[in-house]
Simulated assay, not measured.
Amino acid sequence: MKKKWGLALSAVIIAAGLAGCTNAGDNKAIKLAYVAWDSEIASTNVVKYVLESKLDYEVELLQVDAGPMWAGIADGSADAMVAAWLPSTHASYLEKYGADMEDLGENLSGTKVGLVVPSYMELSSIEDLKTAGSDVAHKIIGIEPGAGIMMSTDQALKDYGLDSDWKLVESSSAAMATELQKAYEAKEPIIVTGWTPHWMFAKMDLKYLEDPKGVYGGDEQIHTMARKDLQSDMPDAYKLLDQFTWTPDDMAEVMVAIQEGKSPEEAAKAWVDSHEDQVKAWLAGIE
């Protein structure tokens, strides 16, 4: 009798284990990597909300620097990103990791990167920095080390013959924007590494310094990148990511809402809830 009860109990445990495995399989989880740029905080949180609210995914956000973001998609430790700035800003990462992931194409076009100053400054070109700079202590306020725009700025300082006098200050995207806003409100001179879309262009009158040598490249696009096999592993999430596309104005709505005090989650939800037709297009063909 004891043996029969033991066999019965074993059967129950095995069945429970199999049920647990089945439930684990049904628990859809996806990891999205992103860099802490205001633009990528906006886009990644919008995609996160749609995955969670429309497709019942559990989404884990991985905030990392640009290099680890690309490496994570390449080695499969992250599933996707909507934050690849191409063809110039992330060119070195594309060359290193691109063969180990899938490019789903652009999700936003018309971006730009470069050196940015308040419009009240008389500077108009990077060339002007050769005879200016004392009023800003020959410093350019940058963002996170390793970011594509930081590497481009290092190159710009060399190509324009400024590397002996000028210093690129490492900080963060948020710290750069804070420093810019403080200087702008005080009408003080400042030079920062900047990009569009970004909420700071909606809040301040800014301009790019002309780049006659083309170090920063021209207009860029933001691409969606996915790990290999994502399509077979998570076909519905893959299709959403493949069909996700929006405009700089769309992104700016979310960025400004965050800058004005909403959490990224609140801003993303508000945008998605007020753009039903656009979101339906992202979900087209998903059963």
Rank of each mutant, 00 (worst) to 15 (best):
K2W: 10
W5P: 03
L9W: 00
G17T: 01
L18T: 10
A29P: 12
L32H: 08
D38F: 07
S39N: 15
E40V: 15
K48F: 05
E52I: 04
E58I: 06
E60C: 11
G67W: 15
A74G: 03
S77T: 11
M81K: 04
W85E: 00
A91P: 00
S92T: 12
L94W: 14
G98W: 03
M101I: 03
L108D: 01
S109M: 09
V113G: 06
S119V: 07
M121F: 05
E127S: 03
G133P: 06
S134D: 15
S134H: 13
I143P: 05
G146M: 07
M151Q: 13
A156D: 04
L157F: 12
K158I: 12
D159C: 09
D159S: 11
D165Y: 12
K167H: 14
L168V: 09
S173W: 14
A174F: 14
A175T: 11
L180K: 00
K182Y: 08
Y184K: 00
E185F: 10
E188M: 07
P189F: 00
V192K: 00
V192G: 00
T196F: 03
M200V: 12
F201A: 03
K207Y: 05
Y208A: 02
P212S: 05
V215G: 04
D219W: 15
T224C: 05
Q231M: 07
D250K: 11
M251E: 13
A252R: 14
A252D: 12
E253N: 14
Q259V: 11
A268Q: 05
A268I: 06
A268G: 05
D273M: 01
Q278K: 15
W282V: 11
A284C: 11
E287C: 09
